[in-house]
């Protein structure tokens, strides 16, 4: 990145850091002005309130005393607020030279750096991150310096997956510690706040990278062990990878409770894709399920018989057991084949 561009960015960054410092100074000034005003008001009220006592106008005293008390309380609150403002450590805005050094270090640390003066963002890209064999791809870390909030600096960062491999149960979770583009910095919270406060941008980005490069199994949005988990297409229960059964017939994943095995070929199928043989009651996959040519009833291959006459495959209980004929054949035989058969059989013994 050209030096001119970096220098320009450093100056803009410096202005961004100065803004909260100026704001804090103004607030302290306002708090002191208000405190002063409260003090003056109390002085005036106090003087008025003591006069009636001198003149023995006892009836007026309670109201004036209440007024003085209210002013004392207001003064107390004003003093408390002023103290709070003055107790805040003064924000020393980093100078442009230091910020330029930060930008150059960022470029060195990440091997890439983008500064967009129009959108007021700094972006670096991490290397591809793999945690416990789950590859999450590289992440772009954006820092936006408009509305810089030094008390909640993580809000100025956005972490976006460049080749997202989100948790299957929530596509907004692109990393165990990133949801909706926001990183939960965990143990990095305090050092990150310090780093941003002091304008140590390179440290801030490195801290974020350190969180992205590590998995805290005690507090993830989605555990890596459940990263690939899916919901059962039938009952909707969340399943881990090892619990999933794929049904190749309907192309969905099912839990083990919603899955059965074909009695003929042992293939796993969802309950919806298994058919019961209408004769023996065994479960059948689509490939192993047959239909009777006569009735269309679904049954297994073992429960089908071949008609000795027309060759049709029909359910075994539909076949005339004695003559091995399907229900369609006896009449047909009587009409068409009838006269010929005896003649042939008569001749056989000869």
């Amino acid at each position: 990145m050209p030096l001119k561009h970096l220098l320009c960015a450093a100056r803009r960054l410096q202005a961004a850091w100065q803004a909260p410092a100026i704001q804090a100074a103004r607030e302290a000034e306002r708090a002191l002005d208000y405190l002063h005003g409260c003090h003056q008001g109390l002085n005036r009220a106090g003087r008025v309130a003591t006069k009636p006592v001198e003149h023995q106008l006892s009836g007026v005293v309670p109201a004036l005393r209440r007024d003085v008390l209210a002013r004392v309380r207001a003064l107390e609150r004003a003093a408390h607020h002023a103290r709070h403002c003055l107790e805040q450590p003064p924000v020393a805005a980093p100078d442009a030279t230091a910020l330029l050094a930060e930008l150059r270090q960022l470029q060195d640390e990440f091997g890439n750096l983008e500064v967009n003066l129009r959108t007021q963002t700094i972006t670096v890209t991490t290397e591809a991150i793999t945690l416990e064999d789950v590859s999450l791809g590289p992440f772009a870390v954006h820092f936006s310096w408009c509305h810089l909030d030094l008390t909640e600096p993580i809000q100025s960062f956005e972490v976006l997956a460049l080749e997202p491999h989100p948790a299957s149960t929530n596509d907004q979770v692109t990393h165990p510690h990133v949801r909706n583009g926001k990183l939960c910095p965990g143990d990095a919270t305090a050092p990150l706040r310090k780093a941003v406060e002091q304008g140590r941008l390179a440290d801030a980005f490195c801290l974020i990278r350190s969180v992205l490069s590590h998995y805290n199994s005690a507090s993830p949005h989605v555990a890596l062990s459940a990263w690939e988990s899916e919901e059962c297409h039938d009952c909707g229960r969340g399943m881990r990878l090892e619990e999933q059964c794929y049904c190749s017939e309907c192309d969905y994943e099912f839990c083990t409770d919603c899955t059965g095995v074909c009695a003929t070929c042992d293939a796993d199928r969802c309950h919806g894709c298994l058919t019961l043989c209408s004769l023996c009651g065994l479960r059948l996959c689509g490939r192993c399920c047959r239909t009777s040519a006569f009735s269309g009833r679904e049954c297994c291959a073992k429960c089908l018989r071949t008609c000795g006459s027309c060759g049709a495959r029909v359910a075994s209980d539909e076949l005339d057991a004695e003559r091995q004929r399907c229900p369609l054949c006896p009449e047909a035989e009587a009409i068409v084949m009838g006269p010929l058969v005896p003649a042939i059989t008569d001749t056989l013994p000869i």
């Binding site: 060195d108 510690h177 965990g186 143990d187 919270t189 490195c206 350190s210 507090s219």
Partner: peptide, 30 residues
């Protein structure tokens, strides 16, 4: 701001930073 070797002798005015490379993140910002 530069990588340093373990036996590098420090000089007055040096700026030394040490940043953990693995930090436990969380689910909710603390």
């Amino acid at each position: 701001r530069q990588p340093a070797s373990a036996d590098q002798m420090l000089q007055a005015g040096d700026r030394v930073t040490m940043t953990p490379t693995k930090i436990e993140g969380a689910r909710i910002a603390r």
